[in-house]
């Protein structure tokens, strides 16, 4: 329990540090939001009124507290460009990016775990080594280039999907998912290669331990030893690795959405950065950070739940 509390506090501190950094960074950069809103023709009085209406005349720490407090009530400010609450704008984008990341993560787990088990079973066979080399090359392919390659082979040459033919989930959930398969695969493939490499090495290391020899000498079959002993022990490092991948996938989705023309968080973030729409940028960055910190927290707790020895070590 103390462990959980400690981790929770540390997560909150991290979130606080990031929120302060993000808020002050955007507060001190040159450019007056009131001036932006009213245009350069505005009279000084109108500007002054606008500033006080937007709360810009308050001291920075007060504005920070207001900003954070507003976040908790679900008010993430108003977009400069669209003049619509940021929450409303992000509302339609959340499921798109959410599904993309979820889909890639599912692909990662579904592809990498059976593959690694296969590798561990057929250690040093010809196919094992050939696939490790192939994996090494796949690892070196940046996800966005993987996206372009998939578009080329499966979209243009084999015509399995229409490049740029995104369908929104409100119109047709089936086709939405079918289209998302390709970008998800592009995000997942290089990570599958990394995961297989790590998990295979981890399982082989476990397989060399004494308890495995003992299990064999007691007459357990290979399958038995593999699934009941080795897999269990090799699973822990895999868990952290997968969680790390999940957070990287969120970041990777920004670029992939651009490759496949998917209107999610990433593209919106990009448009907002280029258009200097700071409330949107702040909200997206804070949202992603909160998600990343949450994933890390859950991993730490899960890790502890699976292996109670962790507490003594830390």
């Amino acid at each position: 329990m103390r462990y959980a509390l400690k981790k929770l506090i540390s997560a909150i501190v991290t979130l606080f540090v990031v929120s302060v950094a993000v808020f002050f960074a955007f507060a001190v950069i040159p450019g007056d939001p009131a001036l932006r809103k009213l245009g350069t023709q505005a009279t000084p009085e109108a500007l002054e009124m606008m500033r006080s209406r937007m709360g810009l005349d308050q001291p920075l720490p007060v504005r920070y507290v207001q900003w954070v407090a507003a976040f908790f009530t679900g008010d993430m400010g108003t977009s400069f460009s669209y003049d619509i609450p940021v929450g409303t704008l992000l509302g339609d984008k959340l499921p798109v990016t959410g599904f993309l990341v979820l889909f890639s993560f599912v692909l990662l787990v579904v592809l990498s775990i059976p593959l690694s088990i296969w590798h561990a079973k057929h250690e040093n066979s010809r196919l094992d080594r050939a696939m490790l080399v192939a994996g090494q090359v796949i690892m070196a392919v940046p996800p966005f280039f993987m996206g372009i390659l998939l578009t080329f082979f499966f979209g243009i040459v084999l015509k399995l999907f229409t490049p740029g033919g995104y369908v929104s989930w409100q119109t047709d959930p089936g086709r939405f998912l079918a289209y998302l398969f390709w970008p998800s695969l592009a995000i997942a493939l290089p990570r599958v290669a990394m995961t297989v490499k790590l998990f295979r090495a981890e399982m082989l290391r476990e397989a060399g331990r004494d308890y495995v020899r003992t299990a064999y000498s007691r007459g357990h079959s290979t399958m038995d030893v593999l699934y009941r002993h080795v897999l269990k022990n090799a699973f822990l490092p895999l868990l952290t690795f997968l969680a790390m991948n999940l957070t990287d996938m969120v970041a990777g989705s920004v670029v992939i959405e651009q490759v496949f023309g998917i209107p999610g968080f990433g593209r919106f973030l990009l448009v907002s950065i280029l258009g200097r729409d700071y409330p949107v940028v702040e909200a997206i960055i804070m949202g992603l950070t909160a998600f990343i910190i949450l994933v890390n927290l859950v991993t730490d707790l899960l890790y502890r739940a699976i292996d109670p020895r962790i507490e003594e070590a830390s």
């Binding site: 991290t14 990031v18 993000v22 960074a25 957070t247 990287d248 969120v250 970041a251 990777g252 920004v254 670029v255 973030l269 990009l270 950065i273 940028v281 960055i285 992603l288 950070t289 990343i292 910190i293 890390n296």
Partner: peptide, 11 residues
């Protein structure tokens, strides 16, 4: 460190 570097760079 918890923050993916590409997001940080974007910021």
């Amino acid at each position: 460190f918890a923050f993916p570097s590409i997001l940080l760079a974007l910021l």
